[in-house]
Amino acid sequence: MIRTLMVRGLLLGLLAGLVAGGFAFVFGEPRIDSAIALEEAATAEAAGSEPEPAGHSHEISRPVQKAGLFLATGLYGLAIGGVFALVYAGLRGRVGPRNEGGLALSAAGMAFVAIILVPFLKYPANPPAVGDPATINDRTFLYVVMVLVGLAATAIAVAVARRITAGSWQRWIGAVAAFLVPVIAAWVVLPTVDEVPEGFPASLLWEFRVASLGTHLVFWAAFGVLFGWVSDRAARRAEALAAA
């Protein structure tokens, strides 16, 4: 069963990754092009020369980067799909909805909130030309800390929900409260990072961040739906064979 779930997770993760790559290509890449153009214009102005065509001053050309986008999202989907399959196997029959599809959607939704939404709200993604290269290690460390906080908060919320034996709404309130306490504490305690240069277009920054979050949302929604649908079909097929 573990092997079947792993293969399912890898294949569907790859497919969802390619779908998310398509979304990022349509909605995210134009914003990256605009940000790179601003960065190169600022660099050329500081050097007193004419700006190069967008993307030509980078070691890897923009067409190659855009083609590599699908490779990156596909590999991301493979990795996430494999890990998700193992977690899903551990959750089956222990936590969450009893039906396969409901469990897959619930797990995917919790994963999105824990490892994407929680860190994004504290440290949102930035386009090129935003952020000091000297602080990239610090910013990466803080982002990873928020991911760990999101995962820990989710685990705590699940544990609290399992311990509450009252009605479903009491379990929901307890789980949400248990999730929010460590998350809000981390948001308050961890330092704020604001390295947006003066004069950077606010609309471009907002559109890039929305596209970035949207790419992750598309991936997790597609993956959760696909994994749940395939798992439901497999469960019904197994029940039909057992009844025959």
Rank of each mutant, 00 (worst) to 15 (best):
V145C: 15
V145L: 14
M146Y: 00
M146G: 02
M146R: 08
M146F: 04
V147G: 10
V147F: 03
V147N: 03
V147L: 12
V147M: 14
L148K: 03
L148N: 03
V149F: 05
V149L: 15
V149C: 05
V149W: 01
V149S: 04
V149Y: 05
G150Q: 10
G150V: 09
G150H: 08
L151R: 05
L151Y: 04
L151I: 14
L151C: 13
L151Q: 06
L151V: 15
L151N: 02
A152Q: 10
A152K: 13
A152Y: 07
A152H: 04
A153R: 05
A153D: 04
A153L: 12
A153K: 11
A153Y: 01
A153S: 02
A153H: 12
T154F: 04
T154R: 12
T154Y: 03
A155R: 11
A155P: 03
A155T: 13
A155S: 09
A155W: 11
I156E: 05
I156K: 07
A157H: 05
A157R: 00
A157P: 05
V158D: 00
V158P: 11
V158S: 01
A159S: 12
A159G: 11
A159Y: 10
A159P: 08
V160G: 00
A161L: 04
A161E: 02
A161D: 08
R162D: 11
R162L: 12
R162M: 12
R162E: 14
R162F: 08
R163L: 07
R163Y: 05
R163D: 06
I164W: 01
I164P: 09
I164S: 00
T165H: 08
T165E: 15
A166H: 09
A166K: 14
A166V: 00
G167H: 05
G167P: 09
G167C: 06
G167D: 12
G167N: 10
G167I: 01
G167S: 05
S168I: 15
S168F: 11
S168C: 02
S168V: 15
S168L: 15
W169K: 15
W169A: 14
W169P: 06
W169G: 12
W169I: 09
Q170N: 06
Q170L: 15
Q170H: 14
Q170E: 09
Q170F: 10
Q170G: 11
Q170P: 08
Q170D: 11
Q170T: 13
R171K: 15
R171L: 03
W172F: 13
I173P: 04
I173K: 13
I173S: 07
I173N: 11
G174M: 00
G174Q: 06
A175H: 01
A175C: 06
A175K: 12
V176S: 10
V176K: 03
V176Y: 01
V176E: 01
A177N: 08
A177P: 10
A177F: 08
A177D: 08
A177V: 09
A178R: 00
A178P: 02
A178L: 03
A178V: 01
F179P: 08
L180A: 15
L180F: 06
L180I: 02
L180K: 05
V181K: 10
V181I: 09
V181D: 07
V181G: 03
V181N: 00
P182I: 05
P182T: 00
P182A: 08
P182Y: 01
V183S: 03
V183T: 11
I184C: 05
I184S: 02
I184A: 15
A185S: 13
A185R: 11
A185N: 12
A185M: 01
A186Q: 14
A186S: 06
A186T: 00
A186N: 06
